[in-house]
Design a protein around this nucleic acid. Structure first.
Lengths: 148, 148
DNA sequence: GTACAAGCTCAACTTAACTTGAGGTCAAGC
DNA sequence: GCTTGACCTCAAGTTAAGTTGAGCTTGTAC
């Protein structure tokens, strides 16, 4: 068998580019796990690097730690994520990314239209109008500018 | 001349879809301005609606209030933004949006590649590798997973 | 001429995602 | 066997962007 190299928290920090305090934090949040040496120091299996990589990727995508935690919970307890597991996660997150991208595109196109139209002073602006419609719909409404 | 209808904070809140407390907050941050009645109540010119619209749009784009404030500072003091002003802002913000979009796309494509490759367990993964390279470059590096 | 909704100020609370600090332990090199 | 750097815990601080609440004033509708 290949030697199972355990990693200290400092080594994980160095290899993952995440601060030690952040690793502690992730652990407190249940996103990663460690076991302890007799001297109460954390030791991590190599798979923690995967997990941390997943976490950072998902954060880039704009998923909160809570959401990431939930997704990771869906993995069978304590198992090193298999390719199958990863497929599920990355597919879900890719969909989220796709959504986010198209949302931003909508916004950008809105801005582009506005550039030509001087819309901020006129009623034609699609962005403005979305916003203004609220006024006519009564005071209670609280809606975002861009439909999701 | 058209009647200059001044707006109360409540009216601005209703028409802009932004909470009164948020308007107070924006004002404290210098993003909008008001003058006061003899009874110390805020009154807003109609142009505040534009400003608030701009603020919300920029927030959607992912710009912080600080950044928005800075951009608005670039407008000649106290002037109602002209079409020209707006063009400048929206162009700048659209560029930022474009950047953000392409960043997310990169990320998505990375994920897509990963879906097929079982990368989390192999060294081929583009996302993983970006990350792993840090290890060889020493401990000090703190870099984001995705190049900007 | 009064009730009461709408305003005002200021301080404190909220959430996310961490970081910083204090005070103390562990381990590896010389 | 001791020094030093890496670890440990736990509490408190930080930033962004507001919200909530207390206590008090304005303004308007009946």
């Amino acid at each position: 068998m290949a030697p199972v190299t355990e990693l200290t928290v400092g080594q994980v920090a160095a290899r993952s580019g995440v601060a030690v305090s952040a690793l502690h934090f992730y652990e407190a949040r249940g996103l990663i796990r460690s076991h302890r040496t007799s001297g109460n120091q954390r030791r991590y299996g190599r798979d923690v690097l995967r997990r941390v990589a997943i976490i950072r990727i998902a954060q880039e995508v704009g998923i909160s730690l809570a959401g990431i935690g939930a997704a990771l919970q869906s993995l069978p307890e304590g198992r090193t994520p298999t390719r199958e597991d990863w497929n599920l996660l990355s597919t879900a997150w890719r969909d989220e990314l796709d959504q986010k991208i198209s949302q931003l595109k909508k916004l950008r196109d809105g801005l582009s239209d506005c550039i030509g139209c001087g819309c901020m002073s006129i009623d034609k602006c699609p962005l403005r109008n979305k916003d203004d419609r609220l006024a006519r719909e009564g005071t209670g409404a609280r809606r975002l500018l861009v439909e999701r």
